[in-house]
Design a binder for these strands. Structure first.
Lengths: 342, 342
DNA sequence: ATCAACCACGCAATCGATTGCGTATTTATT
DNA sequence: AATAAATACGCAATCGATTGCGTGGTTGAT
């Protein structure tokens, strides 16, 4: 006995005594099908529990209704925000979102890219892994005219859509705030410099120092690997053991900054008097930790929405591979107690 | 001019002078193709940047290599953990994860279910929306033998795979802890009772009270709608304005508990002496807020892994629709300062 | 020498929906 | 009245990979 499978338009066609084309057209409301026929076909489809097979349709149309997302860690607030934004924008246009995580590893990112191109996503949204220095795994997308959007973790080595913040400016403003509070030995816990975000933040940080007559001391810049709580504390201990320990630490994420605050509490270091601490991203924890953490808004959710919209627009408006959008979103410094010295 | 599209096995076949079948078999390492031919085909495929079209393969094989996930809010820590677990387990078996959020709305959940059945996911993982009381939108999955796994937010109205914790026990242990600390008027901020998790927690809470000679006062049980920070504070204010205000509040999530701690600080209410506060889920914030929040571990990541594994096993072992697994994971009470009265 | 068992591969159908082109019947236009 | 245009639908190819069945050619066993 043949295994019973899903009901198809052929089944409906046979039962109605019309052709499959008519069923297909009726179900999509094609104008050349009479109104009554459309109604009765819809009725029959419901009755027979007909379920359209998107795969078949997509194959035929050489498209797909899903957007691929490669992120580093889904369970980090900032990235969850991005995904949430993408999903929100995509799903109300009938698009599905396929999510893969790279765990900040190059190898995983390559695997993910391969999986997504194989499944013929109609667009790709990527937040680059920390490790990634080579971008060849994205060329199949370009070659096949599949739009790629980088969010937050972008690269200037590739020409394509980008959604990010002005990292130089954000870091400059953050650093300037510390200077304004009277800090003179400001350290910076950054990410690895080859990842542009961090390079740019170092740039903004450095520029702010120079602009205000402070020298940039390399010993004060620590390039983190994982940017984990542990690493933040480790780096802080290292910095505080210097001959001239810093009187402020500007962290490139909130996780480290919060960990430092906790460490300071244990170690009896007064924040912000002895050490001003500043984070980045505006995670929910920043307004819960005591003292509250000064940080900068990094609009993950909005980034996600914009990224998804770019994919959608790329399709809809049939952009060529030259119409690359570069969307720069606003950030904002949120001043809280961890840096208020005055 | 014909628009240039992806390279297919037909293109490769033509160039090699063999049939498409041979290409297909070679690429999948079929034994009936000679070893040298396999090698040269692989080489050619690489040279021509051949990209397999999973959609075509899936269509033919009446399967798909993606798992659908319907969650409530991606950007809530607990749910992000679940998704992360699913992705982790799925992706190293070559499966992709499609994520949709219901925002705790019934209507969205129905839409999501429809989208996922249309895209022919090979399995569905669901954490039910708060609003959902009717489960008919899942019957297409059952009818088509697509495995469905409920995680955390399960329902007893449907027979299928489930991954959750023992909510009665967890709530019992939590409540007992408060009793042990000398609390006698223990309130409970719950979710809507029709969602089983919350009903069961209310049950465990009530049982603990009764078992220890305390009466269950309905005024002390508040069923939250959104379980947001605001709602938590609102409910607390309500409870504290009672003739006999509670001396402990057991919240069904950490968000509310943390908000209450913050409120208490402002309002000058001493925690835990005047009011003991307890959360649920063990979000990262719980160990950051001061005083640290007592809570219960809710193993989201592990739940996600188990759920994905069930889908995978269901496929691999060709389970029938009767082999339903009910996985109950361990929880653990994490006692911290917010309830330590002794 | 003979029959079985492989080996290496091709043919053509198949998965389910879409769509360009063609046809036959009406309706509208001038 | 004659041509144009719209209506209502069917035929068959198509998207790209998979696979049951079939066919010659080898190898091995008895």
């Amino acid at each position: 006995m043949k295994k019973k499978t899903h009901v198809t338009i052929y089944d409906l066609a046979q039962e109605m005594g019309v052709s499959p084309s008519t069923i297909s057209r009726a179900l999509r409301g094609h104008h050349s099908i009479s109104h009554e026929k459309i109604q009765s076909i819809i009725k029959l489809a419901k009755k027979r529990n007909y379920i359209p097979n998107d795969m078949a349709a997509n194959l035929r149309q050489a498209t797909s209704n899903n957007i691929g997302v490669i992120t580093t860690w889904i369970n980090r607030n900032f990235h969850a925000q991005i995904i949430s934004g993408v999903e929100e924008e995509a799903s109300n246009k009938g698009m599905n979102v396929i999510i893969l995580q790279s765990h900040d590893r190059y190898k995983d990112e390559v695997e993910n890219a391969k999986a997504l191109i194989n499944s013929r996503v109609s667009g790709l949204i990527v937040s680059l892994a920390m490790e990634t220095k080579n971008y060849d795994h994205f060329t199949p997308f370009f070659r096949n005219h599949i739009p790629v959007v980088f969010v937050d973790r972008v690269t200037s080595e590739l020409e394509c859509h980008k959604v990010h913040i002005d990292n130089v400016k954000a870091a400059y403003i953050a650093t300037k705030h510390l200077i304004d509070q009277g800090c003179t030995r400001i350290a910076h816990l950054s990410g690895q410099r080859h990842r542009e975000n961090y390079k740019l933040r170092i740039k903004g940080y450095s520029k702010a120092l120079k602009d205000h007559g402070l020298e940039v001391d390399k010993k004060y810049i620590y390039e983190c690997d994982t940017k984990s709580a542990e690493e933040g504390v480790f780096a802080t201990q290292l910095l505080l053991s210097l001959a001239k320990p810093p009187d402020a630490i500007f962290c490139t994420n909130d996780t480290m900054a919060v960990a430092i605050l906790q460490y300071c509490k244990k170690a009896g270091i007064k924040v912000p008097q002895q050490l001003a601490v500043m984070g980045f991203n505006n995670d929910p924890i920043t307004s819960i930790i005591e003292p509250n953490l000064t940080t900068s808004i990094n609009p993950g959710f909005e980034m996600g929405r914009h990224a998804a919209r770019l994919i959608l627009d790329h399709q809809r408006l049939k952009w060529t591979n030259k119409d690359f959008k570069n969307i720069v979103l606003d950030t904002e410094l949120i001043v809280r107690e961890s840096t208020k010295r005055k």
